[in-house]
Design a protein around this nucleic acid. Sequence first.
DNA 1: TGATAATGTGACAAGGTAGTCATATAGGAG
DNA 2: CTCCTATATGACTACCTTGTCACATTATCA
Lengths: 211, 211
Amino acid sequence: MDTIPKKTFFNLDSEKQQRITDAALNEFALRSYEEANISNIIKDAKIPRGSFYQYFENKLDLYKYVFDYIKEKKMNFLGNDLKNIDDLPFLEIFRLLYHQGVKFSYTYPLFVQIGKHMFNLKKDMYDELVGNGLKLAKEYYVGYLEADKLKGRIREDVDSSIFADIVIELTTNIALEGFLESDIDLDKMVSKADSLINIFKKGIEKGDLNV
Amino acid sequence: MDTIPKKTFFNLDSEKQQRITDAALNEFALRSYEEANISNIIKDAKIPRGSFYQYFENKLDLYKYVFDYIKEKKMNFLGNDLKNIDDLPFLEIFRLLYHQGVKFSYTYPLFVQIGKHMFNLKKDMYDELVGNGLKLAKEYYVGYLEADKLKGRIREDVDSSIFADIVIELTTNIALEGFLESDIDLDKMVSKADSLINIFKKGIEKGDLNV
DNA sequence: TGATAATGTGACAAGGTAGTCATATAGGAG
DNA sequence: CTCCTATATGACTACCTTGTCACATTATCA
C-alpha cells in the first residue's frame, strides 16, 4: 500500500484515467523502463506535468501501476480456464495455459512488448516484480509433475525441476518471440504448441521402448 | 567496413586499446545500449572525451565493435570443438555445444550480461546484429535434424523447425538464466543440460512404444 | 455566499548527456 | 631543424529530463 498511485489518480473520471494508462502502456511498450520518459507520457495523455506528479510519485510508481494493470488483465484472462480442471495430465494443463497465453498475447500485443522489456529490469526490481510469480509457477508445475509421477504418468527419471524450468522458459519467451514476427497467425502458433507438446511427450528419438 | 572503429583506434598501443575495450564491456554489461553512456566509459578508460570521438564515430560504432569482439571470442571458444565431429546424432552435437556454451559463459560472465541486454535492442538493430546468426544456426540445426530423420534416428513426425526453435531458445536463454543466480556451479549446469537432453530423447511420458 | 480544501497548471531549477571544435602536442619525412 | 600531418584534449554548445513550486482554478460544505 506504499504509493502505487496516489488516490487522486483513482478520483479522476475514467476517461482520463484510461488516457493516462494508455499513454503509459504505449511508452513502456516502446521503451524500456529506464529509457521511458514521462514527458512523452504526459504529452500523449494530454495532461500537464504538474498533474502527473499529483497522480504518481514518480516513474517507478507509474510502472508498478502498469505492471499490476497487466497482471490483473492476465489473471482474468487465464482465470476462467483454470477452474474446471479435473485431473488432466500435466501436459494437458500446459496445453491449456499455452493456448490461452497465445490468445492473450494476440489480444494485447502491447503487453507483449512491455513484457519483453521486463527482462532488462535491474535484478532487484525484476525480482520484486516478476521473481515471485515465476517461483510460484515453478512450484505449481513441480508439484503437478511429481503428482503425475506418482500416478505413473511420467517417467521417474525425469527431473521435475528442470522440466518445469524448460516449460516456464518456453512459455515466457517463445510465445513472445512468435509475436515479434510481422505476420501473426494464431492457428499456426497453436499448432506449434501442439507439436511442442508432442515432442515433450514422446521425445524425438525413434524406436525405443520407454521404461 | 563502414566506420567500425576508426583506424586510429587500432593504432593505439594495446594497453590503451584494452583499457577502452574493458571500459566499454563494463558499461554495456551494466546498462542496455540506450542507457549506456559514453561519459562513464571515458571516465573508466581514463581518456579525454575528444579522444573517444577520434577512435569511434559514436555509441553505435563502439557497440558494434564490442559485439564483434565478443563474437570473435566465442567463435574461438567453440571453433575447436566443432572440428572433429564425425557423424554424431543431433542431440550429441547439441550436448557438445551446450557444454561449451556453459563454459564460455562461465569464463566471460561480463559477456552474459551484455548478451542479456541484447534482447532489448530495437528490432532493426537486433536483426542487423543478431538476427542473421540465429537464422544460420536454425538452418544448420534443421538440416542436421532432417539428415538424422533420413538415417532413421529421429521420428518423422517431429517438426524440425519447431524443435530447432526450442533448442535455440534454450541455448540462448536458459544458459543465461543460470548465470544470474548468485551461486554458479559449472558441474550442476552441465548435468542439467544432460537431463534436458534426456527429456528431449525419450520425452516425459511413461510406458509408450515410440513408432 | 464565503471560506477552506483539493486539484490543475506550466515555468523553472538542477542535473545530466552527446557530439564539436579550437587549440596544443607529438611524430615523421626530407 | 622545419614543416606538415596525425593525434590529444577538455571547455563548450545545444539539448533533454525529472521533479518542484507558486499560483490559478474548481469543488465542497456550512
